[in-house]
Structures are given as structure tokens and as C-alpha cells.
């Protein structure tokens, strides 16, 4: 289940993130149709209005475009946009972490050092897999 109904992130945001991931990963490719509003609402077990909101946001971003009566299709540059957007999401995640560090009275330098350590740790993990 890609949706966490207990978490603090708005559900439409979670749905938009989920679709972006799928587009970035190539599950949905350019000019291909996204699942219909109802289908996705029932599949994810969320209110269709919530899915509508996620789709609206994706359309505004230019990731998808609407064809009247046919639904939503992935834009030509959809995958690229999705990857850019995931950089944005990454930025937000780091931002959250940095703010938490600041709240714990850590200096910028210290936070940077921790980031470097985490990056090295991730490399080790990736090699071991």
C-alpha cells in the first residue's frame, strides 16, 4: 500500500508522489494513459475527490495532460519532470532533517558532517547488497 492514511502528509500529496514515482520509474511512459479516477480511488481505497486533487496537481506541474473524454496521459517530458520533482522532494526531506538538527542546537558544520557520514554509510550499504 503506497498510501499511509495515518501519517501527517496529505493523502493527495502522497498519491501525487506515488504517481510521480511510477512515471519516473517508467511504469507509465509518455503518451500512455493513467488509471481512471475511479479505478485509482478504489484501488488505493481513498475518496475520488482526493485522487482528483492529486491529478489536478500533476496536471498543473505539466507531468500529465488531459484529453477530453479520454482521461489523463503522461506528457512527453513526463519522466524528466518527475525526476526533477523527486529532486525537489529530496530537498524537502533534507530540509526537514536540517531543521530537526537546528532544533537540537547543532551547528551547520556539524549537520554537514553528519550528512557526509550518512552518504558514506549509504555507499557501504549499496555495495553490500
Amino acid at each position: 500500500m503506497p498510501i499511509d492514511p495515518n501519517g501527517p502528509v496529505p493523502l493527495y500529496q502522497q498519491i501525487a508522489d506515488y504517481i510521480r514515482q511510477l512515471v519516473a520509474a517508467g511504469v507509465f511512459r509518455s503518451a500512455e494513459a493513467l488509471p481512471s479516477l475511479r479505478a485509482l480511488a478504489v484501488q488505493l481505497a481513498v475518496n475520488p475527490n482526493t485522487v482528483q486533487r492529486a491529478y489536478d496537481q500533476l496536471e498543473r506541474e505539466g507531468l500529465v495532460y488531459a484529453r477530453r473524454g479520454l482521461g489523463l496521459f503522461v506528457a512527453e517530458r513526463g519522466a524528466e519532470l518527475a525526476r526533477n520533482k523527486s529532486q525537489e522532494a529530496l530537498y524537502q526531506t533534507f530540509m526537514q532533517a536540517i531543521l530537526a538538527g537546528k532544533a537540537a542546537q547543532l551547528s551547520g558544520e556539524k549537520i554537514g558532517a553528519i550528512f557526509q557520514r550518512a552518504l558514506a554509510g549509504a555507499d557501504v550499504k549499496a555495495r553490500n547488497q
Binding site: 492514511p5 493523502l11 479516477l37 478504489v42 481513498v46 475518496n47 475520488p48 475527490n49
Partner: peptide, 22 residues
């Protein structure tokens, strides 16, 4: 989805309430 019904859901299962409700 299909029949545009109004739904009034009372529940303790908050995750379900969040999924269903506007």
C-alpha cells in the same frame, strides 16, 4: 464514485475515516 452519493461515516478507525471523507 459511481452514484454520487452523500456519505455520513461515523467510525473509530481513523485511517478509514481519512480515506473516505472529504
Amino acid at each position: 464514485c459511481e452514484r454520487k452519493r452523500t456519505v455520513f461515516l461515523s467510525s473509530h478507525t481513523l485511517s478509514d475515516v481519512r480515506r473516505v471523507s472529504d
